[in-house]
């Protein structure tokens, strides 16, 4: 009897609708207005790579040990170095990072012994050309400069 009454008065549907109407208040809006409202990125986020430089001297921290290139599953890092005749140390000449093949697994930054290569919180990596996704040393040191639209 009760089940029939429940069926006649659409109790099941009304209960569901009550849930929906409970969320009608504007304070329940969860959508992020992305370009206007920027998301909070976690500290450990693995985004665009960066080649750190010493902020005081402007010299690169990279010691050209090639460990990141060896650790990379996609083999997308190319490090070239030159031996300095005066100090007898390896010096970095070129560093290319093919972002179009990167899957942001973080193995390169784990491998880096001097914390020179790091995956940062920048996530806007779109470029107009495929070549634009291959980053050279200068781009890696400066980081991407996406246009921030204001509203």
């Amino acid at each position: 009897m009760l089940t029939i009454l429940k069926k006649i008065f659409f109790v099941d549907l009304i209960r569901g609708l009550l849930v929906t109407f409970r969320y009608q208040h504007p304070k329940n809006i969860y959508t992020e207005q992305y370009p206007a409202e920027r998301p909070k990125i976690a500290e450990r986020y693995r985004g665009a790579p960066r080649l750190n430089i010493n902020p005081e001297t402007g010299e690169t921290l990279c010691i050209a040990c090639n460990l990141c290139a060896l650790a990379c599953p996609e083999q997308l890092i190319v490090v070239t170095s030159e031996r300095n005749e005066v100090t007898k140390r390896k010096e970095l000449t070129k560093f290319t990072y093919d972002l179009s093949r990167c899957m942001f697994c973080g193995l390169c930054e784990d491998a880096c012994p001097v914390d020179a290569l790091e995956l940062t919180q920048d996530f806007e990596l779109a470029s107009y050309t495929r070549e634009g996704a291959i980053w050279d040393r200068q781009m890696l040191e400066e980081g991407p400069k996406p246009i921030w639209y204001r509203y």
């Binding site: 990125i41 976690a42 450990r44 986020y45 693995r46 942001f104 973080g106």
Partner: peptide, 8 residues
């Protein structure tokens, strides 16, 4: 939580 823990 995943993002804060492991970065992805």
């Amino acid at each position: 939580i995943f993002e804060a823990y492991c970065g992805a």
